[in-house]
Amino acid sequence: MAEIARSHQQVASRLSQRSLRRVATRFLFYLAVAGIVVWSIGPFVWQLNASLQPDRYLAASPPHFLPVPGTIQHYYNVFFVKQFELYIINSLIVAGITTLFCLTFGSLAAYGLARFNVQGRFGILGVILAISMFPQIAIVAPLYLLMSGIGFLNTYQSLIIVYLALGLPLVVWVLFGYFRELPRELDEAAKIDGAGAIRILWSILLPISLPGLVTTGLLSFIASWNEFMFALAFTSDIHHQTIPVGVANFTQLYSVPWGDIAAASMVVTIPLVALVLVFQRRIISGLTQGAVKE
């Protein structure tokens, strides 16, 4: 009897040991998950916090962890002193038109490459992708001379043309993936009915590929919204400069206006973050297809 009891005890202690280990592993796992979340949104939240605090809180030690009592002074400054809405309008125009052209040109090219058995199409696709690897600093000077030659400096179209070329390779690549998956019978049937290439693309392929269009549209919009170097080089006044240039120029003579900067950061980032959270699945699938090129 005693022996049996002892073995029972052993089993029990072994069991509790195992469950203890499981609890510990679980705890560490969720700690890692929490770490990832803090990593990803911590700096953003801290910036949001700063944007709502009066300047004297920002200069205080220890720092204020909550904006209580808060202020919207910084947001007021962003719009009514710095005229930030102008940068936002410029960015909306540039990124919007770029995206429209990217989708038009990109879907035509992807259609041509994916739906016709033309020799060397993978070669062409490869070249288009390789072009996207060129360092941008290597093309900025010649493009500056070109834009200045045709009187395009400090215009929207100078940025739209450049962003179009920067965005196209990814758009072509992702849409190529989409179009290739669709059954060929769709084209064949439409062709028998007398539809031309453009009509097949417009009324058959594009409606089915709407998810792909949303993904690529978002990616090219975000890329144009965020681009800095060309905007800095090509535009020179508040009526054409985009948001990144506006944010970069946010300085004062004697002190750094951290609160105003934080407010401006929030204004231009929150729409983007909202967009990304809503469309996260599509964006991730588009990005991973676009970047893991095998």
Partner: peptide, 27 residues
């Protein structure tokens, strides 16, 4: 997974300013 897209989506210029504030020598 969605939260992990936030750093990617934020314009790099804004990231610079954010880290300027996080790593400020004074505050």
């Amino acid at each position: 997974r969605a939260s992990m897209l936030v750093p990617w989506a934020i314009p790099t210029v804004v990231t610079s300013k954010m880290f300027g504030w996080l790593f400020d020598g004074q505050n």
